[in-house]
Amino acid sequence: MGKKILISFFIVILFFLINYTNNKATEYLMKNQPKWYFLNFHSYKNINHVLGTAFGLRALTSDFYYISFLQYYGDLRNAKTQYKDLANYFNDATDADPGFEFVYLFGSAILAFNLGRYDEAVKLIEKGLSYNPKMWKLRIYLGAIAYKEKNDKEKYIKFLEDAIKYEDHPAILERLLGNIYEQIKSADEAAKYWVSVYKTTKDKETKLHAYERLMYMIKNKMIKNIDEIIK
């Protein structure tokens, strides 16, 4: 009898302890995640999101949104509609895993600098900043977007140049900047830039692009000091 009482007593103590640790840890978890991380009454509309949560694979869900974005963006048929659903992919990916920082960078770069959809880009940047205010690269983009909207090309380029100085910038920025150089700077300067991209970029596609641009420029005899640049 005494043993039974002792065990019941022990279980009650454990029960309080578990409730305490559970509450503390949950509090910690909630504090560390943005509001949109948690399911809400509208979550049922996005079944992948709910399933990802239930099976504990949000990060992977996010990855699959990213891959479907790549497919969507790579499909030229969607160019006709100006990739109108593009922002949704970024939104879904960052909803599933708010920590997927590359999506904020890549997404806003495409939306703003490639497609000129500033509102959507700013929205995505704001989402990223509300999640992690320390993502200062996004602030550089904001600057670039502001000047691009004003058509102040020099300052806009300055911001882009800043952006690609740092590691983990999306490779698309390198191509973007090169294309702008070709439009506004001399062919020699643009070629010089492409050579440096060709040498330093980590992205195969960008490397190929740089090579193609250089070849194009050489073929059409646009470059004056070929030897110097190639060196």
Partner: peptide, 14 residues
Amino acid sequence: LFNLKDKIHTNFSL
């Protein structure tokens, strides 16, 4: 609580 694999890419974190 134990699903840290979903939060592995967070910068400031759990």
